[in-house]
Design a protein around this nucleic acid. Sequence first.
DNA 1: TTGTAAGCGTTATCAC
DNA 2: GTGATAACGCTTACAA
Lengths: 336, 336
Amino acid sequence: MAATLRDVADRAQVSIRTVSNVVSGYEHVSEKMRERVTRAIDDLGYSPNPIARTLRTGKTGLLSLVVPEIDVPFFSELARAVIDEADALGFQVMIDQTGHDHERERQLLRSGARRNLFDGMLFAPLATQDELSDLEASDTLPLILLGEHVFDGRFDHVAIDNVQAAHDATTHLLERGRSRIAAIGAQPKETYATPLQRSEGFRLALEEHGLEPVTALQMDAPHYGRADGYAAATALIEQNPGLDAIFCYSDLLAMGAIRSVFDAGLRVPDDIAVIGIDDIQEGRFSRPSLSTVSLDTPYIARTAVERLAARIEDPDVPANEVIAPHELIPRESTQG
Amino acid sequence: MAATLRDVADRAQVSIRTVSNVVSGYEHVSEKMRERVTRAIDDLGYSPNPIARTLRTGKTGLLSLVVPEIDVPFFSELARAVIDEADALGFQVMIDQTGHDHERERQLLRSGARRNLFDGMLFAPLATQDELSDLEASDTLPLILLGEHVFDGRFDHVAIDNVQAAHDATTHLLERGRSRIAAIGAQPKETYATPLQRSEGFRLALEEHGLEPVTALQMDAPHYGRADGYAAATALIEQNPGLDAIFCYSDLLAMGAIRSVFDAGLRVPDDIAVIGIDDIQEGRFSRPSLSTVSLDTPYIARTAVERLAARIEDPDVPANEVIAPHELIPRESTQG
DNA sequence: TTGTAAGCGTTATCAC
DNA sequence: GTGATAACGCTTACAA
């Protein structure tokens, strides 16, 4: 069915080697040959088999992007940027979803079967340090960790300063005169780095303003979806009449929280100000528009893909950690 | 570095054939052999090279999902379902974005290089009939078209009844007593099927209620994003004081339109009712929550992946077209 | 039940 | 500058 190098060679009456040279743009091919081969290629509608090429070269041109769920806006926006960046560098991107499954993340990290299928992996995990701790850098395919800010010299990171981001968001609320501030997004049992760091930033900001973090005002959120934000905010409002602000660890939590405030008959930001983290597109057109801390997904994607490409090129480049910039974006949900 | 079948065979003192048998779960292997081989596999940390396997078998286990933009909620929600379904059937999913680029869609449809990399392709296009018209089913890898409702016996479709969906949305507005109804989402130049069909459904519903579609009330939208909805609605409101409802061809357009209504100092649904199509998650927590026509993405994904798997199994199964169900979901944005 | 060997479509190492 | 030919790691006739 599909034509092979051999078919082209036969038709052009040249050796398979010459055809390969033409296809891969080798310089030293005579004009005559090149033309003859090109014609045969067109006649037969030949295109090279990437699988065979890969078996020979070891390079697939495929990257793996691992995210919890692709339909979470932050991750789909990240994926978009990653795919575009990868495309620019000649890579295609496979998406794996871990669905908040710790075990699945673990598996993906060490599944050797993937070594040969992918040139590298971009990992945006809930992952904890312990998931990586018993992993040698040499055990995995070229790997870039996204988002998590874990101090570990062995792997490349493109991280976010979660402590500072949470601190900035909380400080913004404080500066707007709010003092009974709740936080939504701590994780119940797991020791994921991101929520811990955001809790830390929240606490720090309060203390800087001479406030003591009140345990009752810190709500867990099993996931970071709208429904989780809604449920947590509903409980908070019911139990804390004086509440005047909510800091959510993600924009999606914030969207749910805002809806909950209104369903409780209160207003955002007049009664309760709400701020998130991520700066997903949804928050720019929502009502009220969502104040947030913008994480620079294009920067994260570009840096990560470039870094990964470099590591694929040379596996021995020392691991480094880049902290992506973030920026407070005040919008209506805190302008009260 | 990575161990091969040969290495395992050497270590277990058996032939490569026996190792292969064990790895691929062949039945007739003696217990003794199986154990010896298994031990060697563990010792060496062997896992089979999927690329080599593919070169031999012709099956990659990879599917290609082509969408305009993965960060558009409808497509990320679809992708999530597709990836999950594919996973259940042992496939992994590669994502390609066409970025509304007609030429790129064309390319992806006929790029022969992909024939060997993917077992099949799920295509959620802006695609027009003419993009497919000069394409033989045998030219492409196994292909399922998503969303477009094009009558063409050559390709498998999992389609939406766009005419009926638009009709239902419009009728809902009419039944709520609205009569000066605008529509946002027609496409300027291109002859994409989806907008044409939705325009048709809009027109039909109006006529059934004895109303004449007014050209001035039908707005183009270059893309289907929030910003496009915002811009179109703003223009509509400015030029049509009596407007009492807007039917948007997508939920994202509707989110932008709603914001625009409020920025104009009017209320949804009191002054202007708004309805969309898609039923993205965002619309369930927005304020007001968004009335919409729900497209059953899990159904679409499941049907499409199953169908594709069947076609990969047997390329000669006749093409068929499935119409995915849709359902009107009345929410706050039309309850005035 | 297990071993031997051919071949999937490339690239790359030799010669010439 | 071009032609044979040996891998890449696997599956699968065909033998034994």
